[in-house]
Each structure stands twice: as structure tokens, then as C-alpha cells.
């Protein structure tokens, strides 16, 4: 239940943001990370961004996730 997925902030309108979640567009609330900026990565849990993923590791995270996704695809 504590599952959370990384996503990139695309637009911000008040406390609502549009994000890119591994290629899918989603709307999330940013009440818990009000300082977030467009282009930053956040971790999304139950429709809310709960944490900002720090800059240096954001790319690494994306790469890691893509690698993992690919590895799974190969598996199946």
C-alpha cells in the first residue's frame, strides 16, 4: 500500500500538477511538496506527490527503472 511511482512534473496549476509517469500523463496533488518546480521528479503515492527526487539521482532513477522494466520484459 506504500507503493509509490516516480513521475516528472509537466505543468503546475495551484496545488495540482500534470505529470509524466513513465510515458503516461497523470494529474497529481502537490500539497505535500509545494516547493516543487516544473521539470523536477517526484514520487507519487495515492494521487499525491509525497517527495521530490533529488536532481542528481533523478536521472539515475529513471535509468534504473527503465532497466528494470526491460529486464522484466525480457523475463516474461
Amino acid at each position: 500500500m506504500c507503493l509509490a511511482i516516480p513521475a516528472k512534473i509537466v505543468t503546475i496549476d495551484g496545488t495540482i500538477a500534470k505529470v509524466d509517469m513513465m510515458g503516461n500523463e497523470r494529474i497529481v496533488s502537490i500539497d505535500l511538496v509545494p516547493e516543487v518546480r516544473i521539470g523536477e521528479y517526484v514520487l507519487v503515492h495515492a494521487g499525491f506527490a509525497i517527495s521530490i527526487i533529488d536532481d542528481e539521482s533523478a536521472k539515475e532513477t529513471e535509468e534504473l527503472l527503465l532497466e528494470v522494466a526491460e529486464a522484466y520484459e525480457k523475463d516474461q
Binding site: 500500500m1 506504500c2 509509490a4 496533488s29 500539497d31 503515492h45 499525491f48 509525497i50
Partner: peptide
């Protein structure tokens, strides 16, 4: 409302 500290803030909001 079921969940730990990860979920609770979203309920609080």
C-alpha cells in the same frame, strides 16, 4: 482511512 505515514498526509490534506 487505512495506511501508515506514507498515506496519512494524503488523508490529512
Amino acid at each position: 482511512g487505512i495506511g501508515f505515514e506514507t498515506t496519512v498526509p494524503t488523508v490529512a490534506v
